[in-house]
């Protein structure tokens, strides 16, 4: 399979989950494991251009697929707009759900780069965050959407009120 533009291969037990292959065989530990019931979304990666939960995909089923993980998102040292949004708008606290959340947001904005708040909230329904109450995650995605549209992002709440 191709992971982050790099061709990779490995001889594995068929029961190996894609997330374990990514973390253990490829040493890409940015993709996290938060549950085993495909609920939390911390393991979200791009699989042939769409988001999937890599804890619920067999690695063998990804043979030949094109995978992008959080480590492959920034290009030439340049953060993706979603990464920038999370940094600029305090979209993370402990950071554990963040890689999966960012990948989900990238998937959302690739389909619709001008989502409403409701559409953002719906678009990240498959990713749980326990720290932020999602408030600033929504703001981070709004920021990224504006950047992707080539617009000036709305100011941060703390800038408005300070």
């Amino acid at each position: 399979m191709t992971v982050n533009d790099r061709s990779v291969s490995g001889d594995i037990d068929p029961r190996t989950l894609l997330v374990h292959f990514i973390r253990e065989n490829l040493n890409l530990t940015g993709t996290h494991i938060g549950c085993e019931t495909s609920y939390c979304g911390a393991c979200t990666v791009m699989f042939d251009g769409r988001t999937v939960k890599s804890c619920t995909v067999l690695a063998v089923a990804a043979d030949g697929a094109t995978i992008t993980t959080i480590e492959g998102l920034a290009k030439n040292g340049q953060l993706h707009a979603v990464q920038e949004g999370f940094w600029e708008r305090h979209g993370l606290q402990c950071g554990f759900c963040t890689p999966g959340m960012i990948m989900a947001a990238v998937g959302l904005l690739e389909e619709n780069n001008n989502p409403s708040e409701d559409e953002i909230r719906h678009g990240i329904e498959g990713n749980l965050c326990r720290c932020t109450g999602y408030h600033n995650i929504v703001k981070a995605i709004e920021y990224a959407g504006a950047k992707l549209r080539g617009e000036e992002p709305p100011p941060a709440e703390w800038e408005v009120s300070a």
Binding site: S38, G41, R50, T51, V52, K53, V57, A104, G126
Partner: peptide, 9 residues
């Protein structure tokens, strides 16, 4: 059904 990622797969 499910969520975005589940619907994708």
């Amino acid at each position: 059904t499910g969520d975005v990622q589940v619907r994708n797969r």
